[in-house]
């Protein structure tokens, strides 16, 4: 496939803008915007992971908040054991090193995704939606009743993880860290989607029977995609734990799964940048409307409704229709 030069150009412009964003925010006397952007990037990673199974693989998971939460809790639990000096299960010491906690969070959420995916993928359609929801809710209730780790009140992570000499409490440092990770993650996703694996996955969404005729095991491909997606959500959760310095069962509540799904649909299902656009739009709308009026839910509701009714394919489709009418 030939990618037009304009696409590369606009990507480069976008990247420059993103790198300059904290400086621009400071110049505009609105430094907190950097943090909003960090949140968008983190949710963007989670939404893009969900989109990988949902948009490319056609698996509508309503339980991705589980992996988001697990990623966060891995960071939180490791920090708690580190700060109290009590090893986990009496064996593993805690940690506050980002290079330990985040990869571990990714691994643990991947393992959890393997387990949940292995069971859930035996169903399909609405049943799949509901069974993923079921597993996420079970984890939610589990963490709510875990008193050792704060239960419903959650865990406060007093100090952010350490990464060399970087101060992750600093707004801009955290932003650049998340930007780097988000860009690498997106690149990775792009490679996967355009690989043979990605093609099989998309083929499976279109027709499982055709792929089976080619001698491909749908179950295995789907499970692999589900695990990758769970790992991505875990990564986002681990970053969120570092950004908020707080984790709570809220992170895995079904409404969070719903929000991630809304971000994906809002941005455009099955597109690479869609989830990031969706995350950005959702968070900005929510905070702008909430700052403007206490009846913000009414406004958000109408905007979502109108977007569905009058754009087919989310914001990305809307943008491409607006800007590339001649193309």
């Amino acid at each position: 496939m030939r990618t037009p030069i304009t696409t590369y150009l606009s990507l480069a412009v976008l990247l420059v803008l993103l790198v300059a964003l904290p400086t621009l925010a400071d110049l505009a006397n609105y430094p907190a915007f950097t943090s909003v952007a960090t949140r968008v990037l983190i949710y963007g990673i989670a939404a893009a992971s969900l989109n990988f199974v949902l948009g490319f693989g056609g698996m509508v998971s309503f339980g991705h908040a589980a992996f988001f939460g697990i990623g966060g809790y891995v960071v939180g639990i490791l920090y708690q054991h580190y700060s109290l000096g009590e090893p986990l299960f009496g064996v593993f010491p805690g940690s506050n090193q980002l290079l330990v906690t985040v990869p571990l969070a990714v691994l643990v959420s991947g393992a959890m995704a393997a387990l949940i995916g292995a069971l859930s993928l035996r169903t399909g359609g609405v049943q799949f939606i509901m069974i993923t929801l079921a597993f996420a809710q079970m984890l939610f209730f589990l963490f709510v009743s875990l008193k050792t780790y704060g239960g419903d009140d959650g865990l406060i992570i007093r100090r952010a993880n350490e990464l060399g000499d970087l101060n992750l409490r600093d707004r801009q440092t955290m932003y650049y860290l998340c930007l780097t990770i988000a860009v690498s993650f997106l690149f990775l996703l792009w490679r996967i989607v355009n690989s043979r694996f990605g093609n099989v996955l998309i083929g499976l969404r279109q027709s499982e029977r055709r792929m089976a005729a080619l001698g491909l095991s749908a179950y295995r491909y789907k499970l692999a995609a589900f695990v990758i997606s769970g790992m991505g959500c875990g990564l986002a959760g681990a970053l969120m734990a570092n950004f908020l310095r707080y984790v709570s069962p809220d992170m895995m509540h079904w409404t969070k799964s719903g929000e991630l799904m809304v971000m994906v649909i809002l941005g455009g299902v099955g597109t690479l940048f869609g989830p990031f656009i969706g995350a950005g739009a959702f968070i900005m709308l929510e905070s702008l409307l909430a700052a403007w009026t206490e009846n913000w839910q009414l406004g958000l509701g109408f905007i979502l409704l109108l977007l569905v009714l009058y754009t087919n394919g989310g914001l990305q489709a809307l943008f491409s229709r607006l800007f590339r009418r001649d193309a």
């Binding site: 949902l54 799904m261 649909i265 509701g301």
Partner: peptide
């Protein structure tokens, strides 16, 4: 998915 998003919007509207 479009139905989910639209009816989710309706929930927000009705609640408010």
């Amino acid at each position: 998915l479009d139905q989910v998003l639209a009816t989710f919007g309706l929930i927000l509207i009705f609640n408010q």
